[in-house]
Design a protein around this nucleic acid. Structure first.
Lengths: 252, 252
DNA sequence: CAACAGCCTGACGTCGCGTCAGGTGCAACC
DNA sequence: GGTTGCACCTGACGCGACGTCAGGCTGTTG
Protein backbone atom coordinates (compact mmCIF):
# COMPACT_ATOMS: atom_id res chain seq x y z
CA UNK A 1 0.00 0.00 0.00
CA UNK A 2 1.27 3.44 -0.86
CA UNK A 3 -0.06 6.96 -1.02
CA UNK A 4 0.33 10.05 -3.22
CA UNK A 5 0.88 13.49 -1.70
CA UNK A 6 -2.73 14.45 -2.14
CA UNK A 7 -4.04 11.31 -0.51
CA UNK A 8 -1.69 11.61 2.40
CA UNK A 9 -2.51 15.28 2.80
CA UNK A 10 -6.23 14.51 3.02
CA UNK A 11 -5.58 11.60 5.36
CA UNK A 12 -3.41 13.56 7.75
CA UNK A 13 -5.26 16.85 7.54
CA UNK A 14 -2.37 18.92 6.20
CA UNK A 15 -1.79 20.67 2.88
CA UNK A 16 0.23 19.32 -0.01
CA UNK A 17 2.53 22.28 0.41
CA UNK A 18 3.32 21.16 3.93
CA UNK A 19 4.32 17.72 2.68
CA UNK A 20 6.49 19.31 0.00
CA UNK A 21 8.10 21.41 2.70
CA UNK A 22 8.77 18.42 4.96
CA UNK A 23 10.23 16.56 2.02
CA UNK A 24 12.48 19.45 1.10
CA UNK A 25 13.87 19.88 4.59
CA UNK A 26 14.23 16.13 4.99
CA UNK A 27 11.78 15.80 7.85
CA UNK A 28 9.38 13.40 6.14
CA UNK A 29 10.79 12.20 2.85
CA UNK A 30 8.69 10.24 0.39
CA UNK A 31 10.50 6.94 0.32
CA UNK A 32 9.92 6.48 -3.41
CA UNK A 33 9.23 8.35 -6.60
CA UNK A 34 7.14 7.11 -9.52
CA UNK A 35 8.57 7.17 -13.02
CA UNK A 36 6.87 10.53 -13.49
CA UNK A 37 8.71 11.93 -10.48
CA UNK A 38 5.64 11.86 -8.24
CA UNK A 39 6.13 11.27 -4.50
CA UNK A 40 5.07 7.89 -3.17
CA UNK A 41 4.68 7.43 0.58
CA UNK A 42 4.74 4.04 2.27
CA UNK A 43 3.50 3.02 5.69
CA UNK A 44 6.73 3.94 7.47
CA UNK A 45 6.44 7.44 6.07
CA UNK A 46 2.95 7.63 7.58
CA UNK A 47 4.35 6.60 10.93
CA UNK A 48 6.93 9.30 10.72
CA UNK A 49 4.45 11.94 9.64
CA UNK A 50 2.19 11.12 12.54
CA UNK A 51 5.05 11.57 14.98
CA UNK A 52 5.97 14.87 13.37
CA UNK A 53 2.40 16.16 13.60
CA UNK A 54 2.20 15.16 17.22
CA UNK A 55 5.33 16.99 18.22
CA UNK A 56 4.40 19.94 16.05
CA UNK A 57 1.03 20.24 17.76
CA UNK A 58 2.85 20.20 21.06
CA UNK A 59 4.80 23.24 19.95
CA UNK A 60 8.18 21.85 18.94
CA UNK A 61 10.08 23.62 16.14
CA UNK A 62 10.63 21.31 13.19
CA UNK A 63 14.39 21.01 13.58
CA UNK A 64 13.96 19.77 17.13
CA UNK A 65 11.36 17.31 15.94
CA UNK A 66 13.94 16.02 13.49
CA UNK A 67 16.59 15.51 16.16
CA UNK A 68 14.06 13.79 18.42
CA UNK A 69 12.94 11.41 15.70
CA UNK A 70 16.45 10.74 14.42
CA UNK A 71 17.78 9.85 17.85
CA UNK A 72 18.96 6.25 17.46
CA UNK A 73 18.30 5.60 21.17
CA UNK A 74 14.63 6.52 20.89
CA UNK A 75 12.29 3.73 19.89
CA UNK A 76 8.55 4.26 19.43
CA UNK A 77 7.79 3.53 23.08
CA UNK A 78 10.04 6.39 24.16
CA UNK A 79 8.14 8.80 21.93
CA UNK A 80 4.80 7.59 23.15
CA UNK A 81 5.80 8.06 26.76
CA UNK A 82 7.14 11.52 26.09
CA UNK A 83 4.03 12.52 24.16
CA UNK A 84 1.90 11.20 26.97
CA UNK A 85 3.76 13.31 29.49
CA UNK A 86 3.63 16.43 27.33
CA UNK A 87 -0.08 16.00 26.80
CA UNK A 88 -0.72 15.65 30.51
CA UNK A 89 1.24 18.86 31.06
CA UNK A 90 -0.95 20.58 28.53
CA UNK A 91 -4.06 19.24 30.20
CA UNK A 92 -2.93 20.66 33.51
CA UNK A 93 -2.17 24.01 32.00
CA UNK A 94 -5.48 24.21 30.17
CA UNK A 95 -7.33 23.31 33.33
CA UNK A 96 -5.47 26.10 35.11
CA UNK A 97 -6.57 28.52 32.41
CA UNK A 98 -10.17 27.36 32.66
CA UNK A 99 -10.00 27.91 36.41
CA UNK A 100 -8.53 31.39 35.85
CA UNK A 101 -11.34 32.35 33.48
CA UNK A 102 -13.97 31.06 35.84
CA UNK A 103 -12.41 32.97 38.69
CA UNK A 104 -12.43 36.16 36.68
CA UNK A 105 -16.04 35.59 35.62
CA UNK A 106 -17.08 35.19 39.20
CA UNK A 107 -15.02 38.19 40.25
CA UNK A 108 -16.69 40.40 37.66
CA UNK A 109 -20.10 39.30 38.72
CA UNK A 110 -19.36 40.39 42.24
CA UNK A 111 -17.63 43.58 41.20
CA UNK A 112 -14.31 42.39 42.56
CA UNK A 113 -11.21 43.05 40.52
CA UNK A 114 -8.22 40.78 40.50
CA UNK A 115 -4.66 42.00 40.93
CA UNK A 116 -2.49 42.28 37.82
CA UNK A 117 -0.13 39.61 39.12
CA UNK A 118 -3.04 37.28 39.58
CA UNK A 119 -4.42 37.92 36.12
CA UNK A 120 -1.11 37.16 34.45
CA UNK A 121 -0.32 34.31 36.80
CA UNK A 122 -1.40 31.66 34.37
CA UNK A 123 0.94 33.02 31.69
CA UNK A 124 3.72 33.93 34.06
CA UNK A 125 6.13 31.11 34.78
CA UNK A 126 5.14 29.40 31.61
CA UNK A 127 8.12 28.41 29.56
CA UNK A 128 6.60 26.81 26.47
CA UNK A 129 5.58 23.37 27.61
CA UNK A 130 8.11 21.38 25.69
CA UNK A 131 11.09 23.24 27.07
CA UNK A 132 9.92 22.81 30.63
CA UNK A 133 9.51 19.13 29.94
CA UNK A 134 12.82 18.87 28.13
CA UNK A 135 14.57 20.72 30.93
CA UNK A 136 13.08 18.31 33.41
CA UNK A 137 14.39 15.51 31.26
CA UNK A 138 17.85 16.94 30.95
CA UNK A 139 18.38 18.17 34.47
CA UNK A 140 15.72 16.52 36.56
CA UNK A 141 16.84 12.99 37.23
CA UNK A 142 19.22 12.90 34.33
CA UNK A 143 20.88 9.58 34.93
CA UNK A 144 17.71 7.84 36.06
CA UNK A 145 15.88 9.06 33.01
CA UNK A 146 18.68 8.18 30.68
CA UNK A 147 18.96 4.75 32.20
CA UNK A 148 15.27 4.02 31.91
CA UNK A 149 15.42 5.20 28.33
CA UNK A 150 18.34 2.93 27.55
CA UNK A 151 16.67 0.07 29.33
CA UNK A 152 13.51 0.28 27.27
CA UNK A 153 15.43 0.79 24.07
CA UNK A 154 17.64 -2.18 24.83
CA UNK A 155 14.71 -4.17 26.13
CA UNK A 156 13.13 -4.89 22.81
CA UNK A 157 15.85 -7.49 22.24
CA UNK A 158 16.35 -9.65 25.33
CA UNK A 159 14.20 -8.47 28.24
CA UNK A 160 11.22 -8.13 25.98
CA UNK A 161 10.68 -11.85 26.30
CA UNK A 162 10.66 -11.55 30.07
CA UNK A 163 8.13 -8.73 29.96
CA UNK A 164 6.04 -10.66 27.50
CA UNK A 165 6.20 -13.73 29.75
CA UNK A 166 5.10 -11.63 32.70
CA UNK A 167 1.99 -10.37 30.96
CA UNK A 168 1.28 -13.81 29.49
CA UNK A 169 1.33 -15.07 33.05
CA UNK A 170 -1.29 -12.59 34.23
CA UNK A 171 -3.39 -13.35 31.19
CA UNK A 172 -3.24 -17.09 31.88
CA UNK A 173 -4.23 -16.52 35.49
CA UNK A 174 -7.13 -14.38 34.29
CA UNK A 175 -8.19 -17.21 32.00
CA UNK A 176 -7.88 -19.73 34.85
CA UNK A 177 -10.05 -17.56 37.10
CA UNK A 178 -12.64 -17.31 34.36
CA UNK A 179 -12.60 -21.08 33.83
CA UNK A 180 -12.78 -21.69 37.58
CA UNK A 181 -15.96 -19.63 37.91
CA UNK A 182 -14.34 -16.83 39.92
CA UNK A 183 -16.61 -13.77 39.49
CA UNK A 184 -15.06 -10.91 37.50
CA UNK A 185 -15.81 -8.42 40.24
CA UNK A 186 -14.43 -10.61 43.03
CA UNK A 187 -11.49 -9.51 45.09
CA UNK A 188 -9.30 -12.17 43.48
CA UNK A 189 -10.07 -10.93 39.97
CA UNK A 190 -9.57 -7.33 41.01
CA UNK A 191 -6.18 -8.25 42.45
CA UNK A 192 -5.21 -9.70 39.10
CA UNK A 193 -6.39 -6.49 37.44
CA UNK A 194 -4.27 -4.49 39.83
CA UNK A 195 -1.27 -6.64 38.97
CA UNK A 196 -1.98 -5.97 35.33
CA UNK A 197 -2.10 -2.22 35.94
CA UNK A 198 1.18 -2.23 37.84
CA UNK A 199 2.83 -4.23 35.11
CA UNK A 200 1.87 -1.57 32.58
CA UNK A 201 3.14 1.13 34.89
CA UNK A 202 6.44 -0.63 35.42
CA UNK A 203 7.19 -1.50 31.85
CA UNK A 204 5.43 1.08 29.74
CA UNK A 205 3.91 4.21 31.16
CA UNK A 206 2.34 5.59 34.29
CA UNK A 207 -1.07 3.93 34.22
CA UNK A 208 -3.47 5.47 36.73
CA UNK A 209 -6.60 3.56 37.79
CA UNK A 210 -8.68 5.93 35.62
CA UNK A 211 -6.50 5.32 32.59
CA UNK A 212 -6.69 1.63 33.32
CA UNK A 213 -10.48 1.79 33.48
CA UNK A 214 -10.44 3.44 30.06
CA UNK A 215 -8.35 0.57 28.73
CA UNK A 216 -10.85 -1.83 30.26
CA UNK A 217 -13.71 -0.26 28.35
CA UNK A 218 -11.67 -0.41 25.19
CA UNK A 219 -11.18 -4.16 25.58
CA UNK A 220 -14.86 -4.72 24.88
CA UNK A 221 -15.53 -1.75 22.60
CA UNK A 222 -12.74 -2.25 20.10
CA UNK A 223 -13.06 -5.54 18.31
CA UNK A 224 -9.34 -5.97 17.83
CA UNK A 225 -8.62 -5.78 21.52
CA UNK A 226 -11.57 -8.05 22.08
CA UNK A 227 -10.17 -10.51 19.55
CA UNK A 228 -6.81 -10.47 21.32
CA UNK A 229 -8.36 -11.69 24.54
CA UNK A 230 -10.92 -13.96 22.91
CA UNK A 231 -8.09 -15.90 21.25
CA UNK A 232 -6.78 -16.75 24.70
CA UNK A 233 -10.17 -17.82 26.03
CA UNK A 234 -13.76 -17.12 25.01
CA UNK A 235 -15.35 -14.51 27.24
CA UNK A 236 -12.01 -13.29 28.53
CA UNK A 237 -12.31 -9.80 27.03
CA UNK A 238 -15.49 -9.04 28.95
CA UNK A 239 -14.05 -10.70 32.03
CA UNK A 240 -10.85 -8.67 32.09
CA UNK A 241 -12.77 -5.51 31.26
CA UNK A 242 -15.11 -5.98 34.20
CA UNK A 243 -12.31 -6.85 36.59
CA UNK A 244 -10.22 -3.85 35.54
CA UNK A 245 -13.11 -1.45 35.98
CA UNK A 246 -14.11 -2.92 39.32
CA UNK A 247 -10.52 -2.56 40.47
CA UNK A 248 -10.42 1.06 39.35
CA UNK A 249 -13.68 1.75 41.18
CA UNK A 250 -12.47 0.31 44.46
CA UNK A 251 -9.33 2.46 44.31
CA UNK A 252 -11.14 5.77 44.12
CA UNK B 1 -0.39 53.12 38.99
CA UNK B 2 1.48 52.73 35.73
CA UNK B 3 4.12 50.45 34.24
CA UNK B 4 7.14 50.73 31.95
CA UNK B 5 7.67 48.28 29.09
CA UNK B 6 10.20 46.28 31.05
CA UNK B 7 7.96 45.97 34.09
CA UNK B 8 4.97 44.94 32.01
CA UNK B 9 7.07 42.49 30.05
CA UNK B 10 8.22 40.78 33.24
CA UNK B 11 4.71 40.84 34.67
CA UNK B 12 3.08 39.33 31.62
CA UNK B 13 5.86 36.94 30.68
CA UNK B 14 6.56 38.39 27.25
CA UNK B 15 9.57 40.21 25.79
CA UNK B 16 9.94 43.94 25.41
CA UNK B 17 10.16 43.40 21.69
CA UNK B 18 6.71 41.85 21.73
CA UNK B 19 5.26 44.91 23.45
CA UNK B 20 6.99 47.17 20.92
CA UNK B 21 5.47 45.08 18.17
CA UNK B 22 1.97 45.23 19.64
CA UNK B 23 2.33 48.98 20.04
CA UNK B 24 3.49 49.42 16.46
CA UNK B 25 0.61 47.44 14.98
CA UNK B 26 -1.85 49.14 17.32
CA UNK B 27 -2.88 46.00 19.14
CA UNK B 28 -1.85 47.12 22.62
CA UNK B 29 -0.84 50.77 22.62
CA UNK B 30 0.82 52.38 25.63
CA UNK B 31 -1.76 54.95 26.61
CA UNK B 32 0.90 57.52 27.56
CA UNK B 33 4.46 58.53 26.93
CA UNK B 34 6.83 60.10 29.45
CA UNK B 35 8.68 63.31 28.57
CA UNK B 36 11.60 61.13 27.48
CA UNK B 37 9.39 59.28 25.02
CA UNK B 38 9.18 56.15 27.15
CA UNK B 39 6.00 54.05 27.02
CA UNK B 40 3.76 54.17 30.06
CA UNK B 41 1.05 51.54 30.43
CA UNK B 42 -2.00 52.00 32.65
CA UNK B 43 -4.37 49.43 34.06
CA UNK B 44 -6.64 49.37 31.00
CA UNK B 45 -3.63 48.53 28.87
CA UNK B 46 -2.94 45.58 31.17
CA UNK B 47 -6.52 44.41 30.71
CA UNK B 48 -6.13 44.60 26.99
CA UNK B 49 -2.78 42.80 27.00
CA UNK B 50 -4.22 39.98 29.04
CA UNK B 51 -7.04 39.53 26.55
CA UNK B 52 -4.56 39.54 23.68
CA UNK B 53 -2.36 36.92 25.32
CA UNK B 54 -5.36 34.73 25.99
CA UNK B 55 -6.55 34.76 22.42
CA UNK B 56 -3.00 34.39 21.16
CA UNK B 57 -2.49 31.28 23.27
CA UNK B 58 -5.70 29.92 21.83
CA UNK B 59 -4.20 30.24 18.36
CA UNK B 60 -5.79 33.38 16.96
CA UNK B 61 -3.75 35.49 14.51
CA UNK B 62 -3.16 38.97 15.87
CA UNK B 63 -5.34 40.79 13.38
CA UNK B 64 -8.31 38.66 14.37
CA UNK B 65 -7.56 39.34 17.99
CA UNK B 66 -7.73 43.03 17.16
CA UNK B 67 -11.12 42.77 15.47
CA UNK B 68 -12.45 40.69 18.36
CA UNK B 69 -11.29 43.19 20.95
CA UNK B 70 -12.37 46.23 18.97
CA UNK B 71 -15.89 44.93 18.42
CA UNK B 72 -18.07 47.56 20.10
CA UNK B 73 -20.73 44.91 20.83
CA UNK B 74 -18.35 42.76 22.82
CA UNK B 75 -18.04 43.62 26.48
CA UNK B 76 -15.68 41.74 28.83
CA UNK B 77 -18.32 39.14 29.69
CA UNK B 78 -18.61 38.15 26.05
CA UNK B 79 -14.87 37.59 25.85
CA UNK B 80 -14.81 35.57 29.03
CA UNK B 81 -17.60 33.31 27.81
CA UNK B 82 -15.88 32.81 24.48
CA UNK B 83 -12.55 32.07 26.13
CA UNK B 84 -14.26 29.64 28.44
CA UNK B 85 -15.78 27.80 25.52
CA UNK B 86 -12.53 27.75 23.56
CA UNK B 87 -10.66 26.39 26.54
CA UNK B 88 -13.16 23.64 27.07
CA UNK B 89 -12.80 22.72 23.41
CA UNK B 90 -9.06 22.53 23.89
CA UNK B 91 -9.49 20.37 26.96
CA UNK B 92 -11.63 17.96 25.01
CA UNK B 93 -9.15 17.82 22.18
CA UNK B 94 -6.21 17.26 24.48
CA UNK B 95 -8.07 14.50 26.25
CA UNK B 96 -8.76 12.92 22.88
CA UNK B 97 -5.06 13.05 22.09
CA UNK B 98 -4.18 11.50 25.43
CA UNK B 99 -6.66 8.74 24.72
CA UNK B 100 -5.14 8.23 21.27
CA UNK B 101 -1.64 7.90 22.70
CA UNK B 102 -2.82 5.48 25.35
CA UNK B 103 -4.61 3.43 22.74
CA UNK B 104 -1.50 3.24 20.64
CA UNK B 105 0.60 2.29 23.65
CA UNK B 106 -1.77 -0.49 24.47
CA UNK B 107 -1.91 -1.60 20.85
CA UNK B 108 1.87 -1.80 20.66
CA UNK B 109 2.01 -3.82 23.81
CA UNK B 110 -0.33 -6.36 22.32
CA UNK B 111 1.32 -6.34 18.94
CA UNK B 112 -1.75 -4.89 17.27
CA UNK B 113 -1.28 -2.15 14.72
CA UNK B 114 -3.81 0.58 14.17
CA UNK B 115 -5.11 1.62 10.77
CA UNK B 116 -3.72 4.81 9.23
CA UNK B 117 -7.14 6.49 9.40
CA UNK B 118 -7.33 5.71 13.07
CA UNK B 119 -3.89 7.04 13.76
CA UNK B 120 -4.60 10.37 12.09
CA UNK B 121 -8.13 10.51 13.43
CA UNK B 122 -7.26 12.92 16.16
CA UNK B 123 -5.73 15.35 13.68
CA UNK B 124 -8.25 14.72 10.95
CA UNK B 125 -11.34 16.88 11.15
CA UNK B 126 -9.47 19.39 13.17
CA UNK B 127 -9.90 22.87 11.81
CA UNK B 128 -7.86 24.98 14.20
CA UNK B 129 -10.02 25.19 17.28
CA UNK B 130 -10.92 28.82 17.00
CA UNK B 131 -12.33 28.50 13.51
CA UNK B 132 -14.49 25.57 14.45
CA UNK B 133 -15.76 27.57 17.38
CA UNK B 134 -16.21 30.71 15.35
CA UNK B 135 -18.04 28.74 12.69
CA UNK B 136 -20.35 27.36 15.31
CA UNK B 137 -20.94 30.89 16.46
CA UNK B 138 -21.64 32.21 13.00
CA UNK B 139 -23.73 29.39 11.61
CA UNK B 140 -24.84 27.34 14.59
CA UNK B 141 -27.72 29.14 16.21
CA UNK B 142 -26.77 32.45 14.69
CA UNK B 143 -29.70 34.51 15.80
CA UNK B 144 -29.88 33.00 19.25
CA UNK B 145 -26.21 33.60 19.80
CA UNK B 146 -26.32 37.09 18.37
CA UNK B 147 -29.34 37.93 20.50
CA UNK B 148 -27.74 36.72 23.68
CA UNK B 149 -24.62 38.67 22.81
CA UNK B 150 -26.59 41.83 22.20
CA UNK B 151 -28.56 41.27 25.33
CA UNK B 152 -25.52 41.09 27.52
CA UNK B 153 -23.87 44.00 25.76
CA UNK B 154 -26.98 46.14 26.07
CA UNK B 155 -27.63 44.82 29.53
CA UNK B 156 -24.88 46.64 31.31
CA UNK B 157 -27.00 49.78 31.10
CA UNK B 158 -30.62 49.10 32.08
CA UNK B 159 -31.23 45.41 32.71
CA UNK B 160 -28.08 45.19 34.75
CA UNK B 161 -29.99 46.59 37.69
CA UNK B 162 -32.60 43.88 37.30
CA UNK B 163 -29.93 41.18 37.21
CA UNK B 164 -28.20 42.74 40.17
CA UNK B 165 -31.52 42.88 42.04
CA UNK B 166 -32.10 39.22 41.26
CA UNK B 167 -28.81 38.12 42.73
CA UNK B 168 -29.19 40.49 45.68
CA UNK B 169 -32.48 38.75 46.32
CA UNK B 170 -30.90 35.31 46.46
CA UNK B 171 -28.16 36.64 48.67
CA UNK B 172 -30.68 38.17 51.10
CA UNK B 173 -32.59 34.92 51.24
CA UNK B 174 -29.33 33.09 51.95
CA UNK B 175 -28.68 35.56 54.78
CA UNK B 176 -32.19 35.08 56.13
CA UNK B 177 -31.79 31.31 56.10
CA UNK B 178 -28.50 31.66 57.95
CA UNK B 179 -30.10 33.98 60.53
CA UNK B 180 -33.10 31.65 60.87
CA UNK B 181 -30.87 28.71 61.76
CA UNK B 182 -31.60 26.75 58.58
CA UNK B 183 -28.72 24.27 58.17
CA UNK B 184 -26.44 24.99 55.20
CA UNK B 185 -26.82 21.45 53.89
CA UNK B 186 -30.61 21.40 54.24
CA UNK B 187 -32.82 21.00 51.20
CA UNK B 188 -33.97 24.60 51.49
CA UNK B 189 -30.43 25.95 51.41
CA UNK B 190 -29.54 23.65 48.53
CA UNK B 191 -32.54 24.93 46.61
CA UNK B 192 -31.27 28.47 47.07
CA UNK B 193 -27.86 27.33 45.83
CA UNK B 194 -29.49 25.81 42.78
CA UNK B 195 -31.29 29.07 42.10
CA UNK B 196 -27.95 30.83 42.36
CA UNK B 197 -26.41 28.42 39.87
CA UNK B 198 -29.22 28.88 37.38
CA UNK B 199 -28.97 32.64 37.68
CA UNK B 200 -25.33 32.49 36.72
CA UNK B 201 -26.15 30.21 33.81
CA UNK B 202 -28.92 32.50 32.59
CA UNK B 203 -27.06 35.76 32.84
CA UNK B 204 -23.41 34.95 32.49
CA UNK B 205 -22.15 31.60 31.38
CA UNK B 206 -23.03 27.95 31.37
CA UNK B 207 -22.36 27.01 34.98
CA UNK B 208 -22.38 23.26 35.53
CA UNK B 209 -22.74 21.84 39.05
CA UNK B 210 -19.03 21.01 39.05
CA UNK B 211 -18.06 24.54 38.07
CA UNK B 212 -20.45 25.81 40.71
CA UNK B 213 -18.83 23.60 43.35
CA UNK B 214 -15.49 25.11 42.39
CA UNK B 215 -16.91 28.57 42.91
CA UNK B 216 -18.20 27.43 46.29
CA UNK B 217 -14.73 26.42 47.40
CA UNK B 218 -13.38 29.73 46.22
CA UNK B 219 -15.86 31.64 48.41
CA UNK B 220 -14.02 30.46 51.50
CA UNK B 221 -10.51 30.15 50.06
CA UNK B 222 -10.15 33.59 48.50
CA UNK B 223 -10.42 36.32 51.07
CA UNK B 224 -11.92 38.85 48.69
CA UNK B 225 -14.82 36.60 47.83
CA UNK B 226 -15.15 35.83 51.51
CA UNK B 227 -15.20 39.54 52.30
CA UNK B 228 -17.94 40.09 49.73
CA UNK B 229 -20.25 37.69 51.53
CA UNK B 230 -19.14 38.60 55.02
CA UNK B 231 -20.15 42.21 54.40
CA UNK B 232 -23.70 41.00 53.83
CA UNK B 233 -23.75 38.86 56.96
CA UNK B 234 -21.05 37.30 59.13
CA UNK B 235 -20.68 33.61 58.40
CA UNK B 236 -22.43 33.89 55.05
CA UNK B 237 -19.37 32.96 52.98
CA UNK B 238 -19.01 29.59 54.67
CA UNK B 239 -22.76 29.10 54.62
CA UNK B 240 -23.13 29.72 50.88
CA UNK B 241 -20.04 27.65 50.16
CA UNK B 242 -21.42 24.66 52.03
CA UNK B 243 -24.85 24.96 50.44
CA UNK B 244 -23.43 25.25 46.94
CA UNK B 245 -21.23 22.20 47.35
CA UNK B 246 -24.01 20.15 48.93
CA UNK B 247 -26.24 21.08 46.00
CA UNK B 248 -23.56 20.07 43.52
CA UNK B 249 -23.12 16.75 45.31
CA UNK B 250 -26.82 15.89 45.24
CA UNK B 251 -26.97 16.55 41.48
CA UNK B 252 -24.31 14.04 40.57
C1' DC C 1 -7.05 14.87 -29.13
C1' DA C 2 -8.47 18.00 -25.96
C1' DA C 3 -9.59 18.89 -21.49
C1' DC C 4 -8.90 18.26 -16.88
C1' DA C 5 -7.19 16.62 -12.43
C1' DG C 6 -3.28 15.98 -9.98
C1' DC C 7 1.51 16.18 -9.79
C1' DC C 8 6.09 18.84 -10.21
C1' DT C 9 9.66 22.74 -9.14
C1' DG C 10 10.98 27.43 -8.29
C1' DA C 11 10.27 31.77 -6.16
C1' DC C 12 8.31 35.34 -3.64
C1' DG C 13 5.03 36.81 0.32
C1' DT C 14 3.40 36.68 5.20
C1' DC C 15 3.15 36.56 10.27
C1' DG C 16 5.10 37.13 14.70
C1' DC C 17 8.32 38.14 16.42
C1' DG C 18 14.24 37.66 17.46
C1' DT C 19 18.26 40.04 17.07
C1' DC C 20 21.48 43.38 16.27
C1' DA C 21 22.95 48.42 15.61
C1' DG C 22 23.20 53.00 16.94
C1' DG C 23 21.43 56.57 19.91
C1' DT C 24 18.97 59.05 24.28
C1' DG C 25 17.82 60.03 29.44
C1' DC C 26 19.01 59.55 34.02
C1' DA C 27 20.90 57.95 38.43
C1' DA C 28 25.11 56.59 40.82
C1' DC C 29 29.79 56.39 41.67
C1' DC C 30 34.67 58.02 41.14
C1' DG D 1 32.19 67.10 36.24
C1' DG D 2 32.95 63.00 33.78
C1' DT D 3 31.71 58.36 32.92
C1' DT D 4 29.71 54.18 33.77
C1' DG D 5 25.58 51.57 33.58
C1' DC D 6 20.91 50.57 32.94
C1' DA D 7 16.62 50.86 30.80
C1' DC D 8 14.50 52.92 27.22
C1' DC D 9 14.12 54.41 22.11
C1' DT D 10 13.78 53.61 16.74
C1' DG D 11 14.98 51.40 12.46
C1' DA D 12 16.19 47.42 9.87
C1' DC D 13 17.24 42.86 8.70
C1' DG D 14 16.53 37.71 9.65
C1' DC D 15 13.90 33.53 10.34
C1' DG D 16 10.60 29.58 10.72
C1' DA D 17 6.76 27.40 8.68
C1' DC D 18 4.47 27.46 5.60
C1' DG D 19 0.74 30.18 1.75
C1' DT D 20 0.34 31.41 -2.77
C1' DC D 21 1.06 32.04 -7.35
C1' DA D 22 3.45 30.89 -11.99
C1' DG D 23 4.73 27.80 -15.47
C1' DG D 24 5.14 23.21 -16.91
C1' DC D 25 4.70 17.85 -17.02
C1' DT D 26 1.74 13.37 -16.79
C1' DG D 27 -2.04 10.31 -17.49
C1' DT D 28 -6.81 9.40 -17.93
C1' DT D 29 -11.43 10.16 -19.53
C1' DG D 30 -15.12 11.79 -22.86
Amino acid sequence: MSWTVGELARLAGVTVRTLHHYDRIGLVRASERTSAGHRSYDVRDLDRLQQVLFYRELGFPLDEVATLLDDPDADPAVHLRRQHRLLRDRLERTQAMVAAVEKEMEARQMGISLTPEERFEVFGDWLPEEYAAEAEERWGDTDAWAQSQRRTAAMSKEDWLRVKAESDDVERRFAAALAGGVPADSTAAQDLAEEHRQQISRHFYDCSPEVHAGLGRMYVEDERFTAYYERIAPGLAQYVSTAVQANAARQS
